[in-house]
Design a protein around this nucleic acid. Structure first.
Length: 827
RNA sequence: GCCGGGUUGGCGGAAUGGCAGACGCGAUGGUCUCAAACACCAUUGUCCGAGAGGGCGUGUGGGUUCGAAUCCCACACCCGGCACCA
């Protein structure tokens, strides 16, 4: 016995990993069955986690997201759902291209080598992916359908080309979407300061769905993590207000957007964005020189200073007057850079009495200020934008005076509408998605430019438009797409007229690739269509999506846009792609983000080598609620390993035979076992994975105690408890669980075992602990029957020796009884 | 400035109107050992007390309630989103 002690008190984590991987490969328990779901034999669950970009090997962040994701996927399988849990690679993108330039090779070399590395790591990490659905967005078999979807969007009028000032990253030498420029004006990818360039580029018309993208957030409010819903609301930026038409003398009517039409009587001047075409059109010849000088100044200053709200107001008079439609007042028209060209109509009515920016401008240029809302007596500010009765707001036909803001708004809108001078409307901050990129390693835009026919779509039967073979120095960024250098590729016959024409040389933003990949998982090998609509109907939408905060707006908004567009094309029937969404926290170290420059990186491979896959997974799941950051300095993979060994040791101590009837087993342990299973299910449904682990630990502790100093290792309840530990643990620590399962005398694999049946009778306690409070403070405890009457409980409480002593002769004024749990005595 | 989320022991966190601090980390003491490591056992919010026991305690201040970490009001601080968006 003593000789065997070392051998049986721990197991070799690496040997166990090598032992089970081939067994699982053979059993292949996680392959999703399309037929069963299409036929409705089993209820489906689509579990999705964001597919990685293949830069090097997996890191701690991947380890966390996969560990969390796998708990839920495996749980769903246990509960009898047919689970779709696919994985692939978002494999177009700049790092591969930059590596190719550095190493004089093709981007595919870097990309596919890293994919293999990551694939091997994922296999070792034992995530329950259905590998038969693996895809890579850089495969022609995949981007064929990315291109096809682009053409479909274009047919719907949702993809178009326009000339416009765009965000330009001088580092990456390509344009960027609004979503890819951070709040501080830097590139989301490389951190370089983004500048503006005037270019003709492709856009997706995301604004077409602005209202719906906004409204559907209400439905996602409870099932998506709140901060992402909030971020999307802020990004889409819905504002209710009105369009109001101002006649500009000598020019014509110009419409403005305002959220405060009730303040129209206070509009004392009119401002046009200096960089809008409209400003140049309105400007009189006399003011032309001053205007152009101002525009020059604005251009120089813009990108650095324009972010600052503290900057003093600047502008220039355009030499014309607009007529305020409510009172006929002639108000001067100015150009200024505090009005944005691409929001609203690029022109505003300025109400300095009610808007601080307009107030600042009025002060700077000595323009009149009229208050149209009565500020409270103690108001000490300048512009007043709060609530209160309207003042100074009447003409011959209408008076708003005395009305509150809401009433004044609706009244004036009705009046404007009756006069044809405006209407109530809604405006959005969201802009269209700029999708062209001047880089190589992406899906070519399947358009041919013909001098005679203009833009011509590449015929569907000629898709995919494959990338020409370029490598190394050919790919160096030069401000225009590297594809332009592939002369043979670029020059083609026009599909419409047969004349000489050229291909579009830009590639698509890689966010296009990832906007629809969750559909391709349904039909990853179908070379006749993007996906089978019948499978989409059966599997979709995604039931649970786990990913990173960095995609709160970007990817999640784009995927929502694609889904709505695909619905309107008749490809699918639902409105939203992801029924539930959760973003996991980051793995940090010592209070800081891991980074090379700080030298505080934790290498996942090294952690796996030291503690094993299961201990690392357990550590990440147990550390905190999934959405919170995990500081690696605060957690203990060694402690996790210790726990796993403790759990595993139980399986060696059980002496009863498999299949023994648990009914005769120790009741206390049985009750804990059944309660643990019951609670675990509820906790898992609400993603409370860390608490589930704590409950498994409690069960392990209790089972240990039962073996050592309780009912003993032969008691059937000990087997039941240990088997339950193995089953529950398999969601977090699959290797340890499989090893336990085998030692308990079962065939592999534990993932195919059924979820333990909870006996409701065992969830009922024989006695419960009633607490007795005096003045709300706990002063005694009573063991009572769960069905004790309130009167009996009160009597028992008042008779209790501790309670009598605590009352200390004082008069009992009131007794609150909540049988069977609580008595509160008020003295 | 606007919108959202948060603040609980030395640390990560439990408890969502009824025993605050589950579970774990760390720490301290012990068993084992020649010794150490591992493992195991015990203690571990804080203050008073020899002890029994008691006081205090969930960012701050108020409120509702027999009873509040939990609900309400105000404030402070932290994190995230938007921001010259009319």
């Amino acid at each position: 016995m003593s000789e065997q002690q070392p051998e049986s008190s721990s197991y070799d984590v690496h040997a166990v990993e090598e032992k089970w991987q081939p067994v699982w490969d053979q059993i292949d328990p996680f392959r999703a069955d399309d037929a069963a779901v299409v036929a409705g034999e089993r209820e489906k669950r689509y579990a999705l986690t964001m597919f990685p970009y293949p830069s090097g090997d997996l890191h701690m962040g991947h380890a966390e997201v996969f560990a969390l994701h796998d708990v839920l996927s495996r749980y769903w399988k246990f509960r009898g759902y047919e689970v779709l849990n696919p994985m692939g690679w978002d494999s177009f993108g700049l790092p591969a291209e930059n590596a190719a330039i550095r190493n004089d090779e093709h981007p595919a070399t870097y990309t596919y080598a890293n994919i293999e590395t990551q694939y091997e790591s994922m296999k070792r990490y034992a995530v329950s992916f259905d590998w038969s659905r693996r895809l890579h967005t850089s495969d022609p078999e995949y981007y064929h359908w990315t291109q096809w979807l682009f053409l479909k969007l274009r047919e719907q009028g949702l993809a178009y080309r326009k000339n416009s000032p765009v965000n330009w990253c001088p580092q990456d030498q390509t344009v960027l979407a609004n979503e890819q420029v951070l709040a501080d004006g830097t590139c989301e990818r490389c951190g370089a300061e983004v500048t503006k360039k005037e270019l003709t580029q492709w856009y997706f018309k995301t604004t077409h769905y602005a209202q719906e993208l906004y409204d559907c957030l209400d439905d996602l409010q409870d099932s998506w993590i709140g901060k992402v819903v909030n971020a999307q609301r802020n990004w889409i930026g819905r504002s209710e207000g009105a369009h109001v038409v101002f006649e500009i003398e000598g020019h014509g009517p110009v419409t403005v957007f305002t959220t405060r039409p009730d303040t129209l009587f206070g509009a004392t001047f009119f401002v046009v964005a200096a960089d809008a075409k409209l400003a140049a059109e309105i400007c009189t010849d006399e003011q032309r020189g001053a205007f152009e000088a101002y525009v020059d100044d604005v251009r120089k200053a813009s990108d650095i200073d324009r972010m600052s709200t503290e900057r003093p107001k600047t502008g220039v008079f355009l030499g014309r007057y607009a007529v305020n439609p409510v009172n006929g007042e002639r108000i001067p028209v100015w150009a200024a850079d505090y009005v944005l060209a691409d929001y609203g109509t690029g022109a505003i009515m300025a109400v300095p009495g009610g808007d601080q920016r307009d107030y600042d401008f009025a002060k700077a240029f000595d323009l009149p200020i009229i208050h149209t809302v009565q500020p409270p007596a103690d108001f000490e500010g300048e512009a007043y934008s709060g609530s209160g009765p309207a003042i100074n707001s009447a003409n011959d036909e209408i008076s708003l005076n005395g009305m509150d803001v809401a009433e004044a708004k609706s009244t004036i809108i009705a009046w404007l509408e009756s006069k044809g001078l405006g209407n109530g409307t809604v405006n959005f901050r969201l802009r269209d998605w700029l999708l062209s990129r001047q880089r190589y390693w992406g899906a070519p835009i399947p358009i041919i430019h013909c001098p005679a026919c203009g833009e011509v779509a590449v015929p569907e039967d000629q898709l995919p438009v494959e990338l020409p073979e370029l490598r190394g120095a050919d790919l160096k960024p030069k401000g225009t797409s590297p594809l332009g250098a592939a002369t043979e590729w670029v020059n083609v016959d026009c599909p419409a007229c047969g004349g000489p024409a050229t291909r579009d040389t830009d590639t698509m933003d890689t966010f296009v690739d990832s906007s629809w990949y969750f559909f391709r998982y349904l039909s990853p090998n179908d070379d006749t269509q993007a996906f089978d609509p019948a499978l989409a109907e059966a599997w979709g939408p995604v039931d649970f999506y786990l990913g990173g905060d960095e995609h709160a707006v970007l990817h999640l908004l784009y995927a929502r846009f694609f889904t709505k567009a695909m619905r309107d094309m008749g490809l699918i029937t639902w409105d939203e792609p992801f029924t539930a969404y959760l973003s996991q926290g980051k793995v940090i170290n010592n209070g800081r983000k891991m980074s090379k420059s700080l030298g505080n990186g934790i290498n996942l491979g090294a952690q796996l080598d030291e503690f094993g896959v299961d201990a690392v997974r357990l550590t990440l799941v147990f550390a905190s609620p999934p959405e919170d950051n995990i500081d690696w300095a605060d957690v203990s993979p060694a402690g996790s390993l210790r726990f796993l060994q403790r759990a595993w040791r139980l399986s060696g101590d059980v002496t009863s035979e498999p299949g023994v009837d648990a009914v005769t087993g120790d009741l206390t342990l049985r009750k804990l076992t059944h309660k643990t299973v019951h609670d675990a299910a509820q906790l898992l449904e609400s993603y409370r994975f860390n608490v589930v682990v704590a409950r498994i630990m409690e069960l392990v502790n209790a089972t240990r105690k039962a073996i050592d100093s309780g009912c003993g290792p032969a008691d059937p309840a000990v087997r039941e408890a240990t088997e339950t530990v193995a089953l529950l643990l398999s969601m977090v620590a699959p290797y340890t669980a499989e090893e336990m399962w085998e030692r308990l005398g079962h065939q592999p694999c534990v993932a195919q075992a059924p979820w333990p049946t909870v006996d409701p009778a065992l969830l009922v306690e024989d006695t419960v602990t009633a607490i007795v409070q005096i003045q709300g403070k706990v002063r005694g405890r009573l063991e009572v029957a769960p069905d004790i009457s309130e009167a009996d409980l009160e009597a028992a409480a008042l008779a209790d020796a501790d309670v009598v002593r605590a009352i200390d002769g004082r008069e009992v004024r009131r007794v609150i009884v909540k049988a069977p749990k609580l008595v509160n005595i008020v003295v």
